[in-house]
């Protein structure tokens, strides 16, 4: 459940045109940085906003909702890190809109994960990418 929208993990993703994305970078134990990015289609963010606000969303509301989504994800990831004795610090969300829709790019196996989700009812897509870098490698 993400902001009132029931989602499910998509095992065999296809393609996705990203309308907005929001990124927060988490540093874990000063060893690795994980850039967590929520990528949403316009349909997905509009449906979430429809549930939350009950009306068509404005651009500002789309941005705010996408940022809130990544904030929630990062809160949970930081809680997981903390439960496992790992210190974490994170940035504020950086949110961008793609004027022309952008195809979601793959994340290399050695540098991160890309997880696809869709709304159970409408099948609208969103994705979460986690791109990991080693801090001591700059």
């Amino acid at each position: 459940m993400m902001l009132g929208a029931e989602t499910e993990l998509l095992q065999e993703p296809g393609t996705m045109s990203v309308a907005l994305q929001s990124t927060i970078t988490i540093e874990l134990d000063e060893r690795v940085a994980v850039a967590a990015t929520v990528h949403v289609t316009e349909a997905f963010v509009d449906e979430v906003n429809g549930i939350l606000l009950g009306h068509d969303s404005t651009d500002a509301e789309r941005l705010a909702t996408t940022a809130e989504m990544v904030s929630r994800v990062v809160r949970r990831l930081r809680a997981h890190a903390s439960e496992n004795g790992c210190q974490s610090v994170c940035t504020l969300p950086a949110t961008i809109t793609h004027g022309t829709f952008q195809l979601l790019e793959a994340v290399g196996e050695d540098c991160g994960f890309l997880l696809w989700f869709r709304r159970r009812e409408s099948k609208a897509l969103c994705a979460l990418s986690l791109v990991v870098t080693l801090l001591d490698e700059g």
């Binding site: 989602t7 993990l9 080693l134």
Partner: peptide
Amino acid sequence: SGPVAVLQQMLPEFKNAAMRSID
């Protein structure tokens, strides 16, 4: 070796936690 491997060594369930964070 590599960043993902280091992350997995630090937090083996991180990916699952990420899955649960949205689902």
